[in-house]
Structures are given as C-alpha cells and as structure tokens.
C-alpha cells in the first residue's frame, strides 16, 4: 500500500514519541549524574547511585520481596488460571454464563479498593500474615491477565485435535499436558511475562499490604522520594526497567527456545 499521510500528522506523531520516550531517557541521565540532587542533563558521570541502592538495606530487602512475590503470584495464577481459561473455552456451553463475568470482575474493581479490602478482611479480621495477604493480592491482580492471555491462545486452538488424541488412546488428563499445553505455550509465556511485570510494578494493591519489615520495591521508592529527592531513586528506576527487560529476555530465551526445540 502506498498511502500518503499528511506530513503534519507525521510531525505530530514524532512529537508524541518524543513525549513517550523522553522521560525514560531523562531518568537514565539522572541516574548517572554526580550531583546529589536530581538534575538533567548530568553534570558529571558516576555509578555511585547504583552502589547506593544495595547499601540501603530497605532497598535490598524490598527488591528481594518484590521478586519473591512476583514469582510466586505469577506461578499460582498460572496454576489456577490455565485450567480456568481451559474450562471457560472448552466447556463454554456446559458452564453458566456468570462464570466468565466473574473472571472479569478483578478488572472492574479498583485495585486500591481490592488492596484495602484484603487488608481489612484477610489480614486484620482473619489474621493472615501480611506476606501471605500481599501474595494473595498480587495473585488476584495478575489472574485476569493470565486468564485473558491464555483464553486468547485457546480461542485459536482446535479442540478436535485433543479429541483425536483421546480417540487414539491418550487419557484425557495426560492429553491436556501432552496436546493442549504445548500448543498454547507461547500464550503461557506471554501470560508469565505480563503477570510478572504487572506484579513487580504494582503500587495500588501493595499499598495497604505492606507493613513493618515487609514492603515491595515500588512502595519503598514512594517512601524514599518523600524523604530524599536524590538520584538513588533514578538509579532504582533504571534498575526496575532493566529488570523488566531482563525478565522478558530470560523467559523468552529459556521457555521460548525449549518451545522451539519441542516442536522440531
């Protein structure tokens, strides 16, 4: 197609992309600036602020907590979400309509309300320790992403090949693992990445579910910004961005490459 686009629109789009990417570049610049206050462009360059992250024990602890919570919540969400997505697609006719509505609910309920309600009911009223309440919150937060991505992958899955496998003598439960899962592997990978990143970056749910000794990295950043407005925050932000990219690459490389190997 050779479509001519109005140059004014192209110019506008270029500005939009400067607006989108510029601030991220600025954070990078601020993170390596050698002044003790946040400024851009950097006057001199230093990696001091990255060392500072590990030196501050609160950051050290929260990075570990964030990774633990993101990994566990994503795994649990996949374990309960994949069968649910499968049931919703495979047995749509047999299951009541309100069930699929139920799985959309976490998107409709504001995250901050979800966090507050979990604090009231699960932590305070039922006495569940804060770490586990936080884990429950993050699992619920990422569950709809998992179900939506897996459902999308399953919607293009031809269930008759599953029936073919069963007719050839494969037991239904085994068929799920040998036939269905390998065919939605890319959906599982996408769900994992999306869920992990959503959890790592979450503020609204975690806000109420952190307490003495237990906090997540984004919440710790919020607390730090209020007291010290220094480039450590910029370098933590860069760290989070790099972490995001690394997770994407690692998952894609490990799961992605085995997926390719298995199809051969």
């Amino acid at each position: 197609m050779t479509t001519r686009i109005n140059p004014a629109l192209i110019g506008f789009t270029a500005l939009v992309y400067v607006f989108l990417i510029g601030p991220l570049v600025i954070i990078f610049g601020a993170a390596i600036s050698d002044t003790s206050y946040l400024t851009f462009p950097p006057q001199g360059l230093t990696l001091h602020w990255f060392e500072n992250i590990w030196a501050i024990s609160a950051f050290r602890r929260t990075i570990i907590t964030s990774l633990q919570i993101a990994f566990l919540a994503t795994t649990i969400a996949l374990i309960i979400g994949i069968p649910a997505a499968y049931a919703l697609n495979r047995y749509r006719v047999q299951l009541p309509g309100w069930l699929s509505t139920l799985f959309v609910l976490p998107i409709l309920v504001p995250e901050i309300v979800m966090g507050f309600s979990l604090l009231r009911s699960v932590n305070v009223d039922s006495g569940v320790p804060i770490f586990f309440t936080l884990l429950i919150g993050h699992t619920l937060l990422v569950l709809p992403y998992v179900i939506r991505v897996i459902s999308a992958a399953l919607s293009s899955f031809d269930f008759s090949i599953e029936e073919a496998a069963i007719s050839l003598g494969s037991r239904p439960a085994k068929t799920f693992f040998t036939i269905v899962l390998p065919n939605v592997r890319s959906g599982v990978i996408a769900a994992f990445i999306l869920a992990f990143i959503t959890s790592i970056n979450d503020v609204s749910v975690s806000l109420f579910l952190t307490g003495p000794g237990i906090s997540t990295l984004p919440i710790q950043i919020l607390a730090h910004v209020e007291q010290f407005f220094d480039p450590t925050i910029a370098s933590v932000s860069v760290l989070l961005m790099v972490l995001t990219v690394i997770v994407m690459i690692i998952v894609e490389r490990t799961l992605g490459l085995t997926a390719v190997a298995n199809t051969k």
Binding site: P23, L24, I27, I200, N201, V203, P218, I221, L222, V225, I233, A234, S237, L240, M241, T244
Partner: peptide
C-alpha cells in the same frame, strides 16, 4: 515500565 518510575 512501572507507574512509579514513569511518574517519578
């Protein structure tokens, strides 16, 4: 990229 980072 997280909400906190982008707001910051």
């Amino acid at each position: 990229t997280g909400v906190v980072v982008r707001s910051f």
